[in-house]
Simulated scan of single mutants.
Amino acid sequence: MVVDVQQGFLDASWGATANYPGCETNVERLLQAWVERGLPVVVVRHDSGKPDSPLHPAHPGNALIAPVADTPADLLVTKRVNSAFYGSPDLEAWLRAAGIDQIVVCGIQTNMCVETTARMGGNLGFDVVVALDATRTFDLCGPDGTVVPAATLMQVTATNLHGGGFARIASTDALLAELSPSLTAR
C-alpha cells in the first residue's frame, strides 16, 4: 500500500525531510517486487478539501509521483483524512473480499497518514508491516513552538507502531529478502 506519494509533497513549503529522496527509491523497489510477483498493489491519494492545499484535486500537486503514477494499481483509494481506511472505495471491504490479511505500508508522511493507516489496519486485525525507509516526513512545530526534526518523528512513529503492537517495522531490504521469488498472490 503506497500512501500519498504525490507531487504536492515536493513543494518546499513543507520544509526539511528525513530521508528524501531515499523514500521514493525504496517505494519504487517495493513496487517493482510486488508487480514482478503479481502481488496486489493499493495506491492511496490524498484529495485535500482545502482549496489552497497543494494536494487539492484542482492543483498539479495532487498528481502521483513516478513510479507510483506509472504502476498499475489493483485499487486506488482517495481520501480526505489521514487514514486510508476512511477513503473511497472502502479499503477494508476490498482487502477482506480479496482475502488479504497482511498489508505493507509505505509513503508520505511517516507520522501522519502512514502511521494513522497502519494503526487502523492493526486495530482492524490486519498484519501490518511498515517499510520505514520507504516513508518520509517533515520537521513539525509543536504547540510550544519547539520544532521536532523529521528524523525524530520517524523514530517516534516506529516506536509507537512497534511498541503499541500496531505494526512490525522493517526496512525495504528486509522485506525484499522475505519475498519468495516464486510467490504469487493473484
Rank of each mutant, 00 (worst) to 15 (best):
L124W: 00
T116H: 12
D139V: 05
E115C: 11
T110C: 14
I103K: 03
D133A: 02
R136G: 14
V104G: 07
T117Q: 05
T110Y: 11
M120Y: 08
I108V: 15
V105N: 08
L124K: 04
I108S: 05
G122T: 05
D139L: 04
M112D: 13
C113I: 01
A118L: 12
F138V: 11
A118Q: 10
Q109N: 13
D133E: 01
T110S: 15
T135G: 04
G125V: 04
L124C: 01
C106I: 07
G122D: 09
G122S: 06
F138Q: 09
G122R: 05
T117L: 07
E115G: 08
A118K: 09
N123H: 10
V130N: 11
G125E: 00
A118E: 11
R136D: 15
V114Y: 09
V128A: 13
Q109R: 10
L124M: 03
N123I: 05
G121Y: 03
D139H: 04
T135A: 06
D127K: 06
D133H: 00
T110K: 08
M120Q: 14
V114H: 08
N123M: 12
G107S: 06
V129S: 05
V129A: 09
R136W: 14
I108M: 15
F126I: 01
A131M: 06
I108C: 11
G125N: 01
F126D: 00
M120P: 00
T117A: 02
T137P: 04
C113F: 02
G122V: 09
V104E: 12
T135C: 15
V105A: 09
V114R: 08
T135N: 08
C113H: 03
Q109W: 10
T116K: 08
C113S: 14
G125Q: 00
D133Q: 01
V128N: 10
N123W: 03
G121E: 03
C106N: 06
N111Q: 15
D139C: 04
N123F: 07
C113T: 06
C106Y: 04
Q102S: 14
V114G: 11
R136S: 15
I108D: 04
R119A: 13
F126A: 03
E115P: 04
V104S: 08
V105Y: 06
T116Y: 09
V128C: 12
A131I: 04
F138H: 13
T117N: 06
V129K: 07
D127A: 12
V128W: 07
G107I: 05
T135R: 00
C106Q: 08
Q102A: 14
L124S: 00
R136K: 09
V105F: 07
A134K: 01
T116M: 13
G107W: 04
F126L: 13
V128G: 12
T117R: 03
M120E: 14
T110M: 09
T110I: 11
I103A: 12
A118H: 10
T116D: 11
V104R: 08
T137M: 08
D127M: 02
